[in-house]
Computed example of a mutant assay.
Amino acid sequence: MDIKKRDFLLAGAVLGAGVAATQAMAQSRGSRPINSGKQPSSVDLNYKPRRLNKCIELWEDGQPIYYTGAGVGPGVDPYEQGKKMCKTWADAINYEMEHGCFDLKELREFMRGLKDGGGTRSGHRLPTVFVCPPVIGLDEAYARANTWVIEQILCTGVMGIHICHARDPKAIETYMHMGSRYPFQDFPNTPKVKMQGIRGNSASYAADIWGVSGGTYQHIADLWPLNPRGEIMFGVKIEDTYADKTVAQTLAIPGLAMAEWGPGDHNLWLNGYHGVEDGGLSGHPVVRDASGKVIEDVSALPNMEAVRGRVLAQCKTNKVMFLNAAEVEPGHNHVIQQIKDGTMVVAAGGGGEDVAIIGREFTKRKMPV
């Protein structure tokens, strides 16, 4: 296998959704167009959106969503980048703050740019944005001390939170039901939960980004699918051996929308230091087994497949949307195979828009791109 192809496979599958989003982020900076404009043959060009969050709308129609990175970084004006990314081929944008800079001012400017970008081809005001914050699902006390991070992020106008290292179900429940919600206990057609939300009264910036009044924002800025009117999606990463032990309880929490298995992190936890070494000129880690043999696709190792299988099974049991990286290359990570497996949140990886084009055609999507 030539180096270029091997690196492509590593980026799309071995390193997982994190690296996939990073490569997609590089694409959004200019090496590829923001959107080729290619539509699936099944598209309805007279499509009218039903709700603000286009990803939730697609899920309600049984369609997978495709996401990319924000393209924000050193030397990039976040407002101007937001204006460009409003026209992205992707349904969602992952604004990465786990390893990226926790800069709420830049995030606000990016969201303002999205708002001013002129709307999406599907008729939605802006693409869905979800944030991976720097706080993790460590334990309940840690989560209670850091609910402020969740509120500050949501007040920028984003529509999703994605928590890394979801180890403790109580921590995730705290971030979701306390940190992400208003204190109303009487949302129509919405089950009551044990924890009461602590979001404060004012979210004028977020309401302006969404294009609604403050009162309307408070009525729809709630967790879907817990609240059928909710426009906020909450996700978790089951990406270490501690999270593996509690995955059934975590994915059963009411209101959870999506989950992933974090192959990049899981490889470090399951396969140890010997599993990754400097990739040299290729720019990607070279992965070897204990005998020194190069492994082209770590996600296909038995212990990795077992983890993926458990997370996928729990997603299906709890009607949570499964997240996985996908590729255009043949094999088990090909986008059509991923969709057949049950993937509903697709990290497009090195294939970028091409992955989404193939997937949308396969599922006969009607919403324009």
Rank of each mutant, 00 (worst) to 15 (best):
Y142P: 00
F102K: 00
R125A: 13
K87T: 09
I358F: 07
L107G: 11
L323K: 08
E106D: 15
G16P: 07
F130K: 05
A70N: 05
N46C: 01
G117C: 09
E151H: 08
L58I: 02
E60N: 04
L10N: 08
G272Y: 07
L9D: 04
L104W: 05
Q218W: 01
D244A: 04
Q249W: 00
R199I: 15
K48G: 04
G197H: 02
N271V: 08
T246Y: 05
A248I: 03
P368G: 13
G179Y: 06
L104S: 09
E231N: 07
A325T: 15
P74H: 15
D289P: 00
A11L: 04
K170P: 02
P49V: 02
A17I: 11
P188A: 12
W148L: 13
G350A: 15
F130Q: 04
E57V: 12
D116L: 06
E60Q: 13
Y142M: 02
V335K: 00
Q81T: 01
P40G: 13
R181A: 03
I357V: 12
K293L: 11
T343V: 15
Q81Y: 08
P134N: 13
I198A: 12
Q39D: 07
V298H: 03
W59R: 01
G62V: 10
G262M: 11
E173Q: 07
T317W: 10
R365Y: 06
V328C: 11
H284D: 09
G118E: 13
H274N: 10
R51K: 08
Q314P: 00
G309S: 15
L9M: 10
S36N: 12
K192W: 01
K319D: 14
A356S: 12
Q27I: 04
D103Q: 03
C86M: 03
P254V: 09
T22E: 14
H266R: 10
H124T: 04
T156V: 09
F187Q: 06
G215H: 02
F130L: 10
L251V: 11
A325K: 02
H266G: 08
I56T: 09
M159F: 03
A145D: 14
I3G: 07
Q185T: 13
G118D: 11
A221W: 00
P78L: 09
G352K: 08
E305Y: 05
D91H: 07
V311M: 00
G82M: 07
F362K: 07
V355P: 06
W261I: 11
A70Y: 03
E239N: 13
Y182C: 01
P169W: 02
V158P: 01
G197E: 01
P33F: 10
E296P: 01
I339E: 10
G113A: 01
T120M: 13
R121D: 13
G350H: 12
Q185M: 09
I172F: 12
N333H: 12
N46P: 01
G342D: 05
F102D: 06
C164T: 10
V320K: 02
N94L: 14
D265W: 07
I209G: 14
G113H: 02
G73E: 13
K194P: 00
N227H: 11
L281Q: 14
H284M: 13
G18D: 06
V212W: 01
I65N: 10
G283F: 05
